[in-house]
Design a protein around this nucleic acid. Structure first.
Length: 476
RNA sequence: GGUCCCAUCGUCUAAUGGUUAGGACAUCACCCUUUCACGGUGGCAAUAUGGGUUCGAAUCCCGUUGGGAUCACCA
């Protein structure tokens, strides 16, 4: 049978990292076996619906290259793929489930908000009195327009056992299960019902979801059983954590996928990193493209315990991705970050200097701030033990360098370096005694992307000479 | 609280009864070097704990401790 998995997010806002990882695993389980990956939007909670959230889901998946075979926009044979458009289907199956003895109608008034939990506990533990209402009578009340919900029946006694790919066999007593609402009074299903009906109707073979659903899985199996349906293979995954105690969540202001992209992380690197958060290939490789993951992924290697999201390692990995870019690709990705720089810069040279020095594109700003204008700096910056420089040495160096650079034949790194080295030799100075002051004079910073000659190339002849002259003034 | 789940360096993890417990990030040192990086070499660093089982346990069993999840007309 063809493997079919689905990513079924609620459109409640930004795509967070845990969600994206779940989607990745779903995608990989399907694609590593030549199966289909389906996108379904679970918008049955109108209160939480956020405008535009669906677009973010589409864009994010496309951005990382996880294309879906069926979904709201591309269609498919099992649509619609938006739950709010499947209302009639759920109602039909809910009534059918009542007929089959798997659920009952409940007319207890629902008090909004406040005591919701106490409210629910009362029905769940003491058993809903509405269970005793004869079916015929219940139908009459419904026909009369009385508001109702459909509540699951938990009739079984003893222990439920199910198998999970990650956690193995799990046993839970039926006593622990409560008779939750399957169809709300607004006519829409709860997750508990919608996911079962949809997964069956859409012929989903593998259900991947957070391990917080483990304890309610027996309830879903009861529904499958009542309908005579085959339950899917379950793959419950542990959460992605912010620290040892807390899940990563947007509530905490933790970074979402788009936040990371905005900070200059590459989508490919983010995807690569999160794949490794709870999974490993069994050998020591760490850098993978999505295509490579497709060919080596195996759900059996998924981990049971939560993984803490470590931005430091992502940052390192992002640096690896940046370095693996071709010079052209990097230059193109960097362009948006060059917007505030002077017009006449040699950005090719700038990109070449930046590429090996960056871990995120967002670092471009701090690395290039001196290009617009030399920042204020103390003369003590010319002091460097290793280079054997002092402000006095610097003054001498710049005085010697200025006329030489004015007459240089061609303004490129090779020439500049040769010429400056010659200045050092001719004056019995160390290379560093010439080059270090030049670099400081050009940048006003202790650390820069590139050495003296590279900065000179980036700035161009005119600006370089101007900055050297300015620095000399300052040193006098 | 009941129930379920989890537990290897600071972090991500490997080792499915026999390894000097391996790798990566971070960190530290050194090398390279026109600063800083990149790159290279090396160091520090872990089986939560107590009992079993076994010739032999990170690995299997039990307890303890710690952590998480769940107990909604949210998903």
């Amino acid at each position: 049978m063809k493997i079919r998995t689905r990513f079924a997010p609620s459109p409640t806002g930004y795509m967070h990292i845990g969600n994206l990882r779940t989607a990745l695993y779903e995608y990989l389980i399907a694609k590593s076996a030549g199966g289909d990956f389906i996108l379904r939007i679970e918008d049955t909670d109108q209160k939480r619906y956020v405008e535009g959230a669906t677009d973010i889901i589409f864009q994010t998946l496309k951005r990382v290259g996880m294309l879906w075979d069926e979904g709201p926009d591309v269609g498919g044979n099992y649509g619609p793929y938006v739950q709010s458009e499947r209302r009639d289907i759920y109602a039909q199956y809910a009534h059918k489930l009542v007929e089959l003895g798997g659920a009952h109608y409940c007319f207890c008034a629902h008090k909004d908000d406040e005591d919701e939990e106490e409210n629910a506990a009362a029905y769940a533990k003491l058993k809903d009195p509405c269970r005793l209402i004869p079916l015929e009578e219940a139908k009459k009340r419904i026909a009369n327009g009385e508001p109702f919900v459909v509540r699951q029946n938990i009739n079984k006694k003893g222990t439920s056992i199910f198998h999970d790919v990650v956690y193995g066999d799990i046993e839970i007593d039926y006593d622990e299960l409560d008779e939750g609402v399957l169809l709300k009074s607004d006519g829409l299903p709860t997750y508990n019902f919608a996911n079962v009906v949809d997964d069956h109707l859409m012929q989903i073979t593998h259900v991947v979801r957070g391990n917080e659903y483990i304890s309610s899985t027996p309830k879903y199996n009861l529904i499958y059983e009542a309908f005579g349906w085959q339950p899917p293979v379950y793959v419950h995954v542990p959460p992605v954590m912010k620290d040892a105690q807390h899940k990563l969540s947007k509530r905490n202001g933790d970074a979402s996928f788009q936040d990371l992209v905005a900070k200059g992380y590459l989508p490919e690197a983010i995807l690569n990193y999160i794949a490794l958060l709870g999974w490993n290939p069994g050998d020591e490789r760490e850098i993978f493209s999505l295509d490579e993951l497709k060919s080596i992924f195996s759900a059996e290697r998924l981990n049971k315990s939560p993984a803490i999201f470590d931005i430091a390692k992502l940052t390192w990995m992002n640096g690896q991705y940046i370095r693996n870019l071709s010079a052209e690709e990097f230059d193109e990705l960097a362009q948006p970050y060059y917007q505030n720089l002077p017009q006449n810069l040699d950005t090719k040279a700038l990109s070449a200097a930046l590429q090996p020095r960056l871990e995120t594109l967002g670092q471009i700003a701090e690395q290039t701030d001196f290009l617009s204008a030399v920042p204020e700096y103390e003369l003590s910056l010319y002091e460097n033990k290793k280079m054997k420089t002092t402000p006095e040495v610097a003054q001498k160096a710049l005085t010697l360098v200025l006329p030489v650079l004015q007459n240089i034949a061609e303004w490129n790194n090779e020439n500049l370096f040769e010429v400056l080295k010659a200045v050092a030799v001719n004056n019995e100075m160390k290379n560093g005694q010439i080059l270090y002051p030049v670099r400081i004079a050009l940048s006003g910073k202790e650390t820069t992307p590139g050495g003296a000659t590279e900065l000179a190339v980036i700035l161009g002849k005119e600006e370089t000479l101007k900055r050297l002259a300015d620095a000399l003034q300052k040193l006098k």
